[in-house]
Nucleic acid binder design. Sequence first.
DNA 1: ATAGGGCTAGAC
DNA 2: GTCTAGCCCTAT
Length: 390
Amino acid sequence: MEVMDKWVAEFFLRRQLNPRVYAFPLLSALKPVDSDDCVKLKLTAVLRDISNSMIQGTVDEGMLDLLEILEKLLLQEHSVIMGSLKSAYCWTAVECTLRFMWPVNASDGFFGDALERIWRNRIGTLKEKESDLVTRELLKWESDLNKAFEEPEIYQKIRETNIRYNAISHLNQLLKEQWALLGCSSLESEARKRFLKRKDSPYASRRGGNREKANDVEEVGGVENPDGVGKVNEHEQEHEPSLNKGEMLVARELKDFLLEIQRLIDPITRQDQEPNNAMEHSVDVTPQPDGANRTDAEDSEGTSSSRRVRPHLPTPEPLNVSPLKKGRLERPRPRRPMKFWTSEEVAALREGVKEYGKSWKDIKNSYPVVFADRSEVDLKDKWRNLLGRQ
DNA sequence: ATAGGGCTAGAC
DNA sequence: GTCTAGCCCTAT
């Protein structure tokens, strides 16, 4: 069962889609044994945490922690420390320092503390360990930042640079490479293996050809909600062209299983996230054009005073709440022009109902092009008409 | 998000 | 005028 725990955890952490899973609480809940065969799982966990931080737009000293752990794990695996990791570390370290350069004068804020903490302590330790993360580029930045502390001109110059963009680009590149290197998860490999073993089973050919008569309203009621078996169809291939039929079956098999586990795991993975106890120095910065948020920052040192900068959002349309409005007697917007359903739309709707039942939203989402100008309610109404308006 | 009652434009 | 597909509104 322990193996299964690991596989499931790995599978969840590997998925890059929402809902997001947080590595730290998931792993502490599962308490994986601290042995070498967990390296892949731990790697996955670190990458997941980095990805999550990136999604939240957080590039802080917690990110440096993660990158250092990543290096350690890669060494355990005897992997090469790639250029992308070195660059990502370097630019993240600079970005972390730069956020303390908001005062006009170097000595006014906590720039000196940041130099001490990040460059002398943290990177000093890396130097002692002769880490590959200490590159010429990093050393150059170290010397520039030290100079900046003495010389106001250099301080100003660095202060006005947009480091964040570089840090994020390198981190993205790193993630892309590392996720690719990890390949598919153990759970997926196993599922694929098992599928191949029973490839000759009747499962694959369960559903015969499309024997549907176009616009045959009488038949519609009979096909409603087939409840599940052999749901793979041609349309799925249309929407996921990168998967072959075998892979699709594997994906399909995993899907139901996953939704079940997702419900069990979600509460575990989401607790402890606020406040983020895994990263002590976490300071969130919502992405904004060219460090505009830096000037008014007032962080008190590297404490966990997470100060969220508001994202810039467009001003919402004012709502018409005037009491003078005549209310429902007056149509708030003109009626949409009537548009008859095409046979293509009807066919898609039928396929959709076979596939998802009366989940109009799912049906609409799985035929985004066909139903581009049909709402979920339209689908429901049409289906009701097809059934004969009971 | 979905179900179901009600309205209306357009075909006849 | 009737009929009804498509659209809208509201309760759940």
